[in-house]
């Protein structure tokens, strides 16, 4: 029983660390990418992968109680509102006339 507990804790720690790395990769992407349209995608890495892994890790760490329910609620809420606000920002940029630049298309060649 104790052994099983240790295994779940190890999985939880791995998920938390992986989630934090995912979040920092998303932030790094939003700093490195050249224009607005590609930065949207970098923010989406944080919004989906980082949130899933971190909340899942914290949920496994805390066991099954009211805290898990709250984490689930936060996750469900972020899952509905994250894409919505992403879409709102993209749509507002499109309406205001910020068309995606042709400069970065096919820049490296057709290996993508």
């Amino acid at each position: 029983m104790n052994f099983l507990y240790d295994i779940t804790q190890l999985i939880a720690w791995a998920l938390i660390l992986l989630g934090s790395v995912m979040v920092i990769i998303g932030a790094l992407g939003s700093l490195r990418f050249p224009d607005f349209w590609s930065r949207l995608h970098a923010a989406s890495v944080t919004d989906s992968g980082g949130v899933i892994l971190l909340l899942l890790g914290m949920g496994i760490h805390s066991g099954f109680n009211l805290i898990t329910f709250k984490l689930f609620l936060i996750g469900a809420f972020l899952f509905i509102t994250g894409p919505t606000s992403s879409h709102a920002v993209a749509n507002a940029a499109l309406v205001s006339g910020a068309k995606p630049s042709k400069k970065n298309q096919n820049e490296i060649g057709d290996e993508g």
Binding site: V23, S30, F36, A43, T46, V51, L54, L55, G82, A93
Partner: peptide, 23 residues
């Protein structure tokens, strides 16, 4: 450079803050 970059960063910062408070 643009306004929408800043709005996107604000939104992203908010998501980071939610995770930060949880941890």
């Amino acid at each position: 450079p643009t306004l929408y970059d800043r709005v996107l960063s604000t939104n992203s910062f908010g998501t980071h803050t939610v995770l930060f408070i949880g941890v």
